[in-house]
Structure formats: structure tokens, C-alpha cells
Amino acid sequence: MIPGPFAYHRPASLQDAVGLLSELGEDARPLAGGHSLIPMMKLRLASPAHLIDLAGIAGLKGLREDGGEIVIGATTTQQELVTSDLVAGKLPILRETSLTIADPQVRYLGTLGGNVANGDPGNDMPAVMLALDATYEIAGKSGTRRLAARAFYQSAYVTALAPGEILTAVRIKVPPAGHGYAYEKLKRKVGDYATAAAAVVLTIGGGKVASCAIGLTNLAETPLYAEEASRIIAGSALDDATVRKAVAAAEAITAPASDGRGPAHYRTKMAGVMLARALARAKARAA
């Protein structure tokens, strides 16, 4: 539980951080809340020679509304999401999801950017970002770019971030008032990754689902956008038969590992149960 040697850098600007990252190359890792990276370093599963702490960069913090979008800086903590009125009013699923992440001690340090950028399939926020169709702002040496969350995740811990790039903010289009939402997570205990979890964002009009987007957590090497299941739900009255069809479609795209949370087939079935429950709760919440 003792990490190997590393150098610690604390740049004051994004430019410096990006500069350091590209200068130091693959031996360098950006550090946000540290809740994934530091345990990996203690286990010596990761041994970066340089840690570039993003905590000193003021521009990466904070939440704001920008037109029809909410922009959340990468080093905004889970706790800030829990206490933000803006989040509570317009993106309540972020608050609900944040509260399922570990415990207050972790949430005071863990950041949204770290959670979505690390590519850990166990992290909760990526599936929510897929359901919300969020956009990630990314800075690199050659400038900034935007990328849809749905195009970001490639495999476990592998994302569309190029070497030297930093995820700087998350942009989320504000869902219509009265939308329904839910994040249903089955876990063994506080602090555990999901056995299975489902994020649902939907709108209802005239008794039918007008739009629906579903994300799934920890059920494959990447977070999953359940496109087929979302399509099945859209236009339906969320009747039992349709929910069963959507559940089957969602289960079909899962490929979980067998681990202490249960064998793969159990975890797939739990994806379905979490989805059905999330749909029911989202429906109940929708105006």
C-alpha cells in the first residue's frame, strides 16, 4: 500500500497543465480527486513518474448556466453537485447519482471530471452522461475540442482522450422542466461499485413517453448507452410488455464480468431489474 516514487506538480493554469502533460508524456498523469488513481498507485498497479494536480487551476472549478446548457468544471466535486441549487433544480439526476457515490468523505474530494474521464466502467457518472447526451470539453496542446460523451468511451480505462489532453468541463443540455429521471443502483455496501445500475431520463406527453435515454453502469468494459432499449420505450405508455422488451434489449448489450458482486448472468439480470425500477420511478416523477 505504498506507492512508488513520483514527482508532484501543481500548475496554476490549464495551459501549464497541458504543457506539462505533453512535455512529460506517458509518465505523467493528471490528478483530480485521486479516488481511482491513488489507490491504483498504492497497489502499484499504476506507477506514474509525474502527478499533475489540477486542484490549483481555478478555471476548472464551478457550475454555471450557459444558454440552454449547464457547464460543470472538471474539478467540481460530487459534494458541490449534491449541494448545488442549479443541479437540484435543473439536473436532479446528477444530485441523485452523486449521493450513490461512496460516502461524504469521498464526495468532498471526488470530482465529476475525474469520474467521467478515467474510463473506469464502475464509475457512476458516465452512464448518466450517456443518458443526458452530455458533451465533454477537452483541452490539449493544439487547442480545445468538444466530444459527445456517447463517443468518448472505448474500453476499460481507454477513452477518446489523446495523450496530453485534459477533460476540462462537462456540458449538459438542460432537460425540459417536468422530465422524469432516476438512477437505480444495486450495490453491496456504501462505497462499492454497482453490481448493476441504470440511469433513465425521459419526458412524457399525452400519456406517452416523448423521449427516453438510458445509460447502464458497470455492465461492460465501458458505460453503456442503451440505444435500442431507449428507442423501444420512446412512444410507449410504459406498459409492462414494452418495459419487458426494453429490459431484454438492455440486457442483451451487457457483458459484465463475474466477480464478487455475482456471476455475469446475475449482473445482467440486475441490469434489467434496475432499468425496470428506474423507468417506473422516472415515470412517477415526470410531469
Binding site: 460516502d103 453491496r188 455496501k189 456504501v190 462505497g191 462499492d192 466477480d259 464478487g260
Partner: peptide, 23 residues
């Protein structure tokens, strides 16, 4: 828990169940 090769699969508090006040 040991797998068939004798690896301990529950060697940390991530997988060895220690309940918190919540559970």
C-alpha cells in the same frame, strides 16, 4: 475466497465485506 489457482479474490475491503453504519 480463493479461486481454483489459490488466488485470494477478497483480499481488500473493496471485496471483503465490512459493513458501515449504513448497512
Amino acid at each position: 475466497h480463493y479461486d481454483e489457482d489459490g488466488n485470494v479474490t477478497t483480499g481488500s475491503l473493496m471485496d471483503y465485506f465490512l459493513p458501515t453504519a449504513v448497512e
